Amino acid sequence: MSDFSHSLSASASALRAQAVRLRHVSENISNADTPGYRRKTVPFETVENAGRDVVQAGRVKLDRRALSRIYDPGHPLADETGHYRGSNVDLMIEIADAREAQRSYEANLKMFDQTRQMSSSLMDLLRK
């Protein structure tokens, strides 16, 4: 496998991992008001593929921080004190994570495109 294909493979694996991360961040945002919902996090792992290291998303983990207690005596899930358990999703953290994942995705996409362009330029030079 050439250095170009190794570079493309590394970029593609990073793109897939960031896409998984973005999917879980969007799930967290959409479930921010769901009672009992725990925030999902996705760690990245380095895996060897054909003698080269690539990145992949690991197993989804649930955030073990305490769920917020919300006072709403009219809510169907409220206990005798009028509280129910909300989610532990912090929208500011999720927005920051989404922005970071988006920027990482864009950087890997640029690297993929530049590698492809360099490979194409090399083939043009070899044909002459």
Rank of each mutant, 00 (worst) to 15 (best):
E80M: 01
T46S: 14
V42Q: 02
S87R: 08
L109T: 14
S30Y: 05
A101G: 05
P73S: 01
F44P: 02
D33P: 00
V47K: 15
Y105D: 04
R99V: 09
R99M: 12
Y105W: 13
G86L: 03
K61L: 14
T41V: 10
Q102R: 14
V54Q: 04
A78T: 06
E100Y: 01
L62N: 03
I29G: 02
I93P: 00
Y71G: 00
Y71C: 07
P76Y: 03
F44T: 00
T81N: 06
I95Q: 09
E106G: 08
A96M: 14
A101I: 04
P43V: 12
A96S: 14
R99Y: 03
Q56M: 13
D72M: 01
V54P: 00
E80S: 11
D97N: 15
D63K: 15
S104E: 11
E94Y: 04
G86Y: 03
R85N: 06
P73K: 01
A98S: 15
V42F: 08
T34M: 14
A57F: 10
R99K: 10
A32S: 13
Y71N: 02
V42C: 05
R103E: 02
A50Y: 10
T34Y: 11
R59F: 05
E27C: 05
P73T: 06
Y105G: 07
N88G: 13
N49E: 12
S104P: 00
G86R: 05
A66C: 09
V60E: 13
R99G: 01
